[in-house]
Measured scan of single mutants.
Amino acid sequence: VFVDDHLLEKVLELNAKGEKRLIKTWSRRSTIVPEMVGHTIAVYNGKQHVPVYITENMVGHKLGEFAP
Rank of each mutant, 00 (worst) to 15 (best):
P68S: 08
E13H: 08
I41W: 01
V33E: 02
K20M: 07
I32T: 04
E65K: 14
I23H: 01
G60N: 15
T31K: 05
V33W: 03
E65T: 11
V11E: 01
K47G: 07
E56N: 14
H6V: 15
L22G: 03
V59N: 06
H61L: 13
S30D: 01
R21L: 12
E19L: 13
M58Q: 08
V59E: 07
K10R: 12
A42G: 14
L63V: 04
K10L: 15
N15P: 01
A67M: 04
G60E: 07
D4E: 09
W26F: 14
L7W: 01
F66D: 01
V1A: 15
H49S: 05
R28G: 04
L22M: 12
Y44K: 03
N15S: 03
H61Q: 12
Y44H: 07
I54S: 00
Q48K: 12
K47N: 10
L14H: 04
L12Y: 06
N15F: 02
H49P: 04
P51N: 13
D5G: 15
V59C: 14
R28Q: 05
Y44E: 02
F66R: 02
E9K: 15
W26M: 09
T25G: 02
N15I: 05
K10N: 10
P34F: 13
I41Y: 01
W26Q: 07
K47W: 10
K24P: 07
V52L: 10
E9V: 09
V11F: 03
M36R: 00
L12I: 11
V52A: 05
V50H: 11
P68E: 09
V59A: 07
H6Y: 15
A42I: 02
E13L: 08
Y53N: 13
L7N: 01
V3H: 04
L63K: 00
R28D: 03
H49K: 03
P34E: 11
E13R: 09
K10C: 15
A67D: 04
G64T: 04
I41A: 01
G18M: 07
Y53H: 10
V43N: 00
E19C: 11
R28M: 04
A67E: 04
L63M: 06
A67F: 04
F66S: 04
M36F: 12
V33G: 03
I32H: 00
D4G: 02
L12Q: 10
V3T: 06
S30P: 02
E56Y: 14
G18D: 07
V37E: 09
S30E: 02
R28I: 04
T40R: 09
D4S: 05
P68A: 12
D4M: 01
L22S: 06
T40G: 05
N15V: 04
K62S: 10
K62Y: 08
G18P: 02
T25C: 04
Y44V: 03
E65D: 06
T55A: 12
P51T: 11
V11W: 01
S27R: 05
T55P: 01
G60D: 09
G60Y: 15
Y44L: 05
I41Q: 00
T40I: 09
V59M: 10
K62D: 04
E65M: 11
Y53P: 11
A67R: 03
G46H: 15
T31D: 08
E19N: 06
R29D: 08
E35H: 08
A16P: 01
K17H: 08
E65R: 14
E19G: 04
A42P: 00
H49M: 09
G18V: 03
L22K: 06
R29E: 09
L22R: 06
L22N: 04
H39L: 04
N57E: 14
H49N: 05
G64N: 06
E65S: 11
P68M: 11
E9G: 12
